[in-house]
């Protein structure tokens, strides 16, 4: 069974626990994907246009941005490989939601494991908007079953009936 795990820099332990729960007779082939979002870079381009500047920051700065993205992505994937020894690391760039579903198709994933949204600390609130736009898109467009991993939130129950 080929399982594509989506990393976001905050969720490797959650994803690890979820895959451990998958009791299957078949061996798991794990793929770890991390997508560097190119949206912010485009925003910086638009900003330069507004200030009537030619597109793209000066070459040394551009290179520095690329290096930082690459190093951060590698760091996240290395952390993933530490939890999933022998997994295949897939580093992508683009719009995360689209890269994930396209990679799932290309890599012939049988299951995509994704967390509801990146968690940067604080309480995991349940309710509307608790599933981010990337996870929502993947659930809507994935070429295979999707395991949506939500954080434990038992302490927030019962909710009003």
């Amino acid at each position: 069974m080929r399982v594509l795990c989506c990393l976001d820099g905050t969720n490797v332990e959650q994803v690890n626990k979820a895959t451990e729960m998958l009791s299957t007779s078949q061996p798991l082939t794990i793929g770890l994907i991390y997508v560097t979002d190119t949206g912010p870079r485009h925003d910086i381009e638009h900003l330069r246009e507004r200030f009537l500047r030619p597109p793209g920051p000066p070459p040394p700065r551009e290179e520095e941005m690329r290096q930082a993205e690459k190093a951060s992505a590698q760091d996240i994937l290395d952390e993933g490989l530490h939890h999933f020894p022998g997994a295949e690391a897939l580093q992508r760039q683009g719009r995360p939601e689209r890269e994930i579903v396209n990679t799932a198709a290309e890599w012939q994933a049988d299951l995509v494991v994704i967390c509801s949204r990146a968690e940067y600390g604080g309480r995991h609130a349940i309710g509307p908007k608790s599933v981010g736009h990337v996870a929502r898109f993947v659930v809507d467009h994935a070429p295979c079953p999707v395991l949506l991993v939500r954080p434990l939130a038992r302490e927030q129950f019962p909710i009003s009936r």
């Binding site: 910086i44 700065r61 941005m65 190093a71 951060s72």
Partner: peptide
């Protein structure tokens, strides 16, 4: 762009 690089490095 400098802040972008910084926060990317800091994850």
């Amino acid at each position: 762009p400098i802040v972008y690089v910084l926060v990317t490095k800091l994850r």
